[in-house]
Every structure is written in C-alpha cells, then in structure tokens.
C-alpha cells in the first residue's frame, strides 16, 4: 500500500510494510548553474518493485538516477540503500546497483564479449564467474551468436540490449534504467521488456525512467510522475488512475451537431467526432443518453465509458501534456 500526498508536496513516501525497503531517498536537491534540477525529491522503494519514473525531458529523472548511482552528488538530501548511506558507503552503489544510462555507452570497436568482459571487471566480477555471467546475459539478450562481433556492426536495438546486459553482470539487486528503449525497433523493445519482466520476477528491483506512458503501463506496478524537478504524484498505477482518471462518457452520434443540455454533467468537451462528458453520476447520465437516443432516433455510433489513462493522470497532475 502506498500513501501519497499529491500536488501539495513532492515528499511522498511509501507506508511501512513487512516487505524490505531497499531504497530511501530523502529531500534531494540539485542545482545546475542556477537551474534547479531537483526540488526536494523524496521517495522510497520496497524490494521487488518495478517502479516507473514518468516525465518529460528535463523533468529531473536522469539527475535523480545519476545521484542514486553516485555519478553526481546532490546539493542536499540523502540516499540510503539497504539502510546504508550512499555517500559514506560508495562501494554499495557498484555492489548492489546496475545502471543503464540513457546513451548507448559501449565501445563500438570492441566486440560484445569484450565490452561485457570490461564492464564485468569494473564491477569486480572476475575469472570463471565472469565468463559464466557473460554467457548468461548474452543468452538473456538473445545475442549469444553475435558475442564476437564488433558493436559497430549491431543494430540500435541490439546495442540497447548489450547496454542493459553490461549492467547485469554483477547480479545487481536494484537495476536503474534511464530511458533504455529510445530509438529502437518494436522487436528489440519487446525483447527488452521481456528481459526486464524476467529480472523483476527473479526479485530484482527495477527503476525505469521513460517519457512513454505505455511503457510505464506495461512494465511498472508503481509510478512517480515527475515534472520540473519535483515528484508531482506517486503510487501504484491503478491507484493513480482511480484518483486522477476521469469519470466520463464518450458519445458519438452521426449527424448530431449540438448536444442538448444534460443533467449531472459537470463538463463537456469535443473530442474527435464526438463528445466527452464528465460526470460523477455515470449510470444516471448513461440512462438519460439512451432515452434521448431512443426519443430522437439518434444514429449512435459510440456510447462508452472512458477508461482512465495515464496520459490523463499526467495532464491532471502537471497541468500539461507529456512533452517529448
């Protein structure tokens, strides 16, 4: 169960639960040359969660992730991993965290195997164990047969898969992925989704940053919506949809130019060839519409309950559309 206090503050916390808390982030602030990149970001994660960071470019997702991985330091605030403060125990970062950056950070002139060998060694994996792990992650990525090929000969999707594999060699407990599917084909995207689901099933906690709503819906069971350096809302996906999604009906009638006045409808807006009618009394409005259709012999093309979408949640929470 997650408690949130949306809008009022970005200091949102998961309620304590019997499941182990793996990560506790408190009051992170970061400023780049007078631009405040993070403003009081607070959240915590339980082990085994698949957590999505949703927000436009510049929202502060990457900055948060780079602080979590020790690449940059926050101006203030703290990050605890398994109860250990990261700033005083930097080795914990590399021991427990696997980081997949937004860019494809691989050596183009080296083979996939050589790249994985290098990153495995930088995480402290050596010898037979490293060889075995390389075989395993190459199998996971479906690129075992391309192990000896130069990365420069790979497609964008293949590179993305190896980019993820490089962060898995030391069996991290927390995998942080910063927009790992940018610019790839659907096949590779599906492969990556399946890899992430499999890792999550194996108990790896996932933090997944994206500006694609559908990726969050498919992969994450908990979501934080970020904008302008703040967490605007956070919680389980279903809960966010319930809390911020519209109660609305969509009506489309052939030849109807204008809707008659309707009781209990709080707002009406034109969408496509029909109207979205927001209401707190769905059944009553729906019955009324059916009566009107029968009375006026409307040629009804569509009369449906609008399913709450994350896009709508984002719009409600941030007041803007999700931008690229």
């Amino acid at each position: 169960m997650i408690e949130t206090t949306p809008k009022a503050s970005s200091t949102l916390q998961f309620a304590s639960a019997p499941i182990e808390t793996i990560l506790e982030v408190s009051h992170l602030r970061k400023t780049y040359a007078k631009k405040q990149a993070l403003q009081d970001v607070t959240f915590s994660l339980k082990a085994g969660t698949s957590f999505g960071f949703l927000g436009p470019n510049g929202a502060g997702k990457s900055t948060t992730m780079k602080i979590l991985t020790g690449i940059i330091k926050a101006d203030s605030g703290s990050v605890k991993l398994f109860g250990q403060e990261l700033t005083t125990d930097a080795d914990a970062v590399s021991k427990y965290i696997g980081y997949v950056p937004q860019e494809i950070t691989l050596y183009e002139k080296l083979s996939a195997y050589d790249n994985l060998e290098f990153f495995g060694q930088t995480y402290g994996v050596r010898g037979k164990e490293l060889k075995q792990r390389i075989q395993e992650v190459l199998t996971q990525t479906g690129l075992l047969d391309r192990a000896k090929d130069e990365i420069s000969t790979f497609s964008g999707g293949m590179k993305r898969r190896i980019n993820i594999a490089a962060a898995l060699l030391h069996r991290p407990k927390l995998l942080i992925l910063d927009e790992p599917t940018v610019g790839i084909d659907p096949q590779s995207r599906n492969h990556i989704f399946e890899m992430i689901r499999e890792l999550n099933r194996e108990g790896v906690t996932i933090i997944y940053s994206t500006h694609y709503m559908e990726e969050v819906e498919v992969l994450c069971d908990e979501v934080a919506i970020m904008d302008q350096g703040m967490i605007k809302a956070m919680g389980p996906l279903g809960e966010l949809l319930d809390r911020y999604g519209d109660n609305a009906i969509y009506l489309e009638v052939n030849g109807l130019q204008e809707l008659p006045p309707l009781e209990h409808v709080t707002s009406t807006r034109k969408e496509g060839s029909g109207w979205v009618l927001e209401t707190e009394r769905m059944n009553s409005v729906m019955q009324h519409l059916l009566q009107l259709a029968s009375t006026h012999s409307w040629d009804v093309k569509q009369l449906t309950v609008v399913r709450p979408s994350l896009e709508h949640v984002f719009l409600r929470v941030t007041g803007t559309q999700l931008r690229d």
Partner: peptide, 13 residues
C-alpha cells in the same frame, strides 16, 4: 562525450 566515463563512474573504478 559518449557517456562511457559517466557510466564507468557508477562502477567500482
């Protein structure tokens, strides 16, 4: 430029 240095910094190095 490629972000490799940044990535290496997230490791034991």
């Amino acid at each position: 430029k490629t972000g490799l240095l940044s990535r290496v910094r997230s490791t034991n190095v």
